[in-house]
């Protein structure tokens, strides 16, 4: 996913001279293609995320679309107020990029476990969350974010994720993307890189005949349009590699309660807090956190 990210960013930067990249002293063996081709639009802000984000907002106020890049919680929680006040409140085109969403950096410990980031970002007005399920959705989301500039959060896995689309799909906020055909009344809805987990379960026959969907673009303001996705269904199981508290499944539950007539059951597959403070491989930690079938 991070390779798709940098390839797409380079391609977009060739078309759009106002795209800039600021990294928080991270991105070794990832960001070099951009830095080499666009040295005038690449900045390493050093280990200083608050300044990185305020700086990005200032540049964005002067016409740039700035991507800030770091890993795990550093570009989000460390500078949460800069995102809230400087970027989101002022509706500036800054895309906060976090690599290693969920438990991708499992062995590195709690500091590197990004399992509360949706909770933070989805409570900010004007903030568009982009949590692509594969490298193709990553490219599609980035094209969308550049065409619709504003505050956004791009949550990536790591590297080597398989593709579930042959080409970048058309993406729109709140719109579910069908990944596997099946029963339309009982479906699984995934956000972010844990789509890979859902597809592995499906291949092992653990999901029955459920259809599988990915929802890469969602936000506070996309709740209303979920009603029609829920009206025709009996059961939606949400999947996310994030704590259940204030995450993606909770977002869909909030969408559902807006219409008391909806009978659709929503089951949440999300991490529980017992995973916090434990180290291990991503697979092991997801299992400890309760993402098993």
């Amino acid at each position: 996913m991070r390779n798709a990210f940098i390839q797409e960013l380079v391609a977009l930067a060739r078309q759009h001279p106002h795209i800039a990249l600021i990294v928080g002293d991270l991105g070794y063996s990832v960001i070099e293609p951009f830095a080499e081709e666009f040295p005038d639009r690449f900045i390493n802000a050093g280990v200083a995320e608050q300044n990185m984000t305020g700086l990005a907002a200032g540049m964005a106020s002067e016409g740039y679309h700035v991507f800030t890049y770091s890993i795990a919680n550093f570009p989000t929680f460390r500078c949460a107020e800069q995102i809230r006040n400087d970027v989101a409140y002022h509706k500036l085109p800054v895309t906060v990029v976090a690599v290693g969403g969920g438990l991708a950096y499992g062995a590195l410990g709690y500091s590197h476990h990004a399992v509360q980031d949706y909770a933070l970002m989805r409570t900010m007005p004007n903030m568009q969350i982009a949590a692509p399920g594969d490298p193709m959705e990553t490219r599609a989301c980035m094209r969308y974010l550049v065409e619709h500039p504003g505050p956004s959060y791009l949550r990536l896995g790591k590297a080597g994720e398989p593709c579930f689309h042959e080409v970048p799909p058309e993406v729109n906020p709140g719109q579910w993307l069908k990944i596997r055909e099946g029963d339309e009344e009982h479906v699984l809805l995934s956000t972010g890189a844990c789509l890979q987990m859902a597809m592995e379960w499906a291949n092992e026959g653990k999901l029955g005949n459920r259809s599988i969907y990915s929802l890469p673009l969602w936000s506070m303001k996309d709740k209303d349009i979920q009603i029609k996705n829920l009206q025709s269904r009996k059961e939606v199981t949400t999947l996310e590699d994030h704590l259940q508290d204030a995450g993606f499944g909770s977002w869909l539950l909030e969408a559902r309660v807006q219409d008391p007539k909806i009978a659709c059951t929503i089951n949440l597959m999300a991490l529980n807090h017992t995973v916090c403070g434990t180290v291990g491989s991503q697979t092991t930690l997801n299992r400890i956190g309760g993402l098993t079938i």
Partner: peptide, 25 residues
Amino acid sequence: VEFSTGSLGHGLPFGTGKALAAKMQ
């Protein structure tokens, strides 16, 4: 007014971004 503040420590990073943008342009 260029920028809303209220929480302290936000103006100088933001202004630094503006100054950098001016140099880049």
